[in-house]
Design a protein around this nucleic acid. Structure first.
Lengths: 114, 114
DNA sequence: ATTATAGTTATCCATATAGCTAACTATAAT
DNA sequence: ATTATAGTTAGCTATATGGATAACTATAAT
């Protein structure tokens, strides 16, 4: 449970950056070496590598070095964990009206709007 | 497009904190005043209010002050935006094998594993 | 044997984040 | 009229983050 929450922390944090989301978006199409992943960005390699590390620590990608090139691959498992969180919220949100009191309160609130 | 990305930045950033996720989780069940939302947390009110602001700026919740109490409500639209991003990635991931070259490359990679 | 390539390590910097306290405002409640 | 409640505003602090450069290692390539 704690681990579940902690991993959502690092997972969402990893996704809260446009470079990192773009890297995921690229890797979803297939593996690629760091050099190729870095190419589109106007950023020093060590800076870029930090993004790779963040993604890897979040479990969104894996990487493996062969010779002098490190190849990165997408890992779908963690994305599923994030999606589950959204599903859970949507489910609860959708079940709001199961309770009549809630319904009345909500309608009250909504008719109060301008 | 840029706005779309920027809003994903703030959206995921907002969700990358356990307190904020818990607040969303609470509001999904129905509206609540700040005081009530803050109660479970061992945190000064101004600190807690920052979380509320982050959530509101991300568009995940809305709030309205009546008298001296500010009531917060969940806003489902943004969660949908985040889910769309996940759906998009999953779709591309699932279509990996449409291309035979990709398939062969991938199988090659997979048999290389220990 | 040299040189170029692909990362890595170490250090540094500016800004953002998450928390705090103290003092304040405005609205109930007594 | 007082007092308590619910937020708000205004600083302050420690740590994390996203970026940079410089110097290094290890592996191709020539």
């Amino acid at each position: 449970m704690d681990n579940y929450n902690a991993s959502l922390d690092t997972l969402f944090h990893a996704l809260a950056d446009p470079t990192r989301r773009a890297v995921v978006q690229r890797l979803v199409k297939g593996p690629a070496p760091v050099k190729e992943l870095a190419a589109p960005y106007d950023m020093a390699l060590p800076s870029f590598m930090k993004h790779i590390s963040v993604l890897e620590e979040a479990g969104l990608i894996a990487s493996k070095k062969q010779g002098r090139v490190r190849t990165c691959t997408f890992n779908p498992d963690k994305l599923a964990a994030a999606e589950k969180w959204f599903d859970d919220q949507r489910t609860i949100w959708a079940s709001r009206f199961d309770n009549l009191d809630t319904l009345l309160t909500t309608l009250q609130g909504e008719t109060d709007e301008t």
